[in-house]
Design a binder for these strands. Structure first.
Lengths: 160, 160
DNA sequence: ATGTTTCCCATCAACTTACTAGGAAATACC
DNA sequence: GGTATTTCCTAGTAAGTTGATGGGAAACAT
């Protein structure tokens, strides 16, 4: 229903990865069990399992089965952007009626509407591709992003 | 499925409004029939009808019934932002698992994830609230927006 | 009156989302 | 070798959303 929707999958995925990030910064090889992540973040276990599998298939997470098994980051948290995570879990960042913004075509007075949607996608990329797991874990977001957060009204919802 | 999705409703709505904008610039009181918009933009008539009704209820469009009836903009196109249109048709711009970004709460290493989602919403607002129907009709987007479009790769999709 | 055009309600198929169930496969420890 | 553990994989499912369509009632011009 909403134009920008962070799905449960993307939200849970980010939270799981931030748990793994915290552990990674202590010891990059340390494995964490799915169950531990699940209880730490209150994520349904079997649902989380599927999310972590997708993240492994995208090369973000590594896993080991069996007793003493678990998950860990497969790349440094400073090399995993939020866009990477969202794309791994939810597919392409932006779509217009199910198509890529650059693929839609307009006639007459709507001729330049495409530019608008491409700009929307570019704005989204500018945020999501420049924030890494390490940035969020350290609460040290890139300057252009903190500038967005300092804008008046950024934390308030628009009227009704 | 996609994080940013411009729905058929929003896309059709924008196109309908741009048709109305073109007419408005000639004569602000001129009415346009739903059927004319429908054929000009290839939008299913009855679907469009519902969209225009929503836009009227939001005070963006005015309408008149009966022979010689139709639709027109109820405000100057330079005073209708794309955010207005999208909110009228699809509700709030951004949500995290169905909630407003400022309402979600995180524990442990995810503590600062909220800032990320709020920044995402702010970035979206910065684009959608500053582009008006008049801007799109005249192909004269605000400078910060054209700057987004000039970034290398803005028009290309990411790898796979 | 009559034709036109918007308004409003109800319905519908296809799809997506957020999960859940059950078991197979790998690994560690005894 | 056997057992317990933990991830991997496939399938299914209830609820909700999306993108429409249909049938008439209400307003308006002639």
């Amino acid at each position: 229903m909403e134009t920008v929707h962070i799905s449960a999958k993307a939200d849970y995925g980010m939270r799981a990865l931030l748990e793994l990030t915290a552990v990674y910064l202590e010891n990059p090889k340390q494995l964490v069990k799915g169950d531990a992540i699940s209880t730490a973040q209150g994520i349904p276990v079997k649902f989380l399992e599927g999310i972590l599998r997708q993240l492994r298939q995208s090369g973000i997470v590594a896993s080991q089965r069996g007793a003493e098994g678990g998950y860990r980051l497969d790349r440094s948290p400073s090399e995993v952007s939020i866009a990477d995570v969202v794309r791994a879990l939810d597919g392409p960042l932006a779509a217009v009626r199910g198509q890529r913004p650059e693929d839609v075509d307009y006639a007459g007075p709507s001729e330049h509407l495409k530019e608008v949607w491409v700009a929307v996608r570019a704005a989204m990329r500018d945020v999501l591709e420049h924030i890494t797991l390490a940035d969020v874990a350290a609460n040290d977001l890139p300057a252009p992003v903190t500038r967005l957060l300092d804008e008046p009204g950024a934390w308030q919802r628009r009227k009704p």
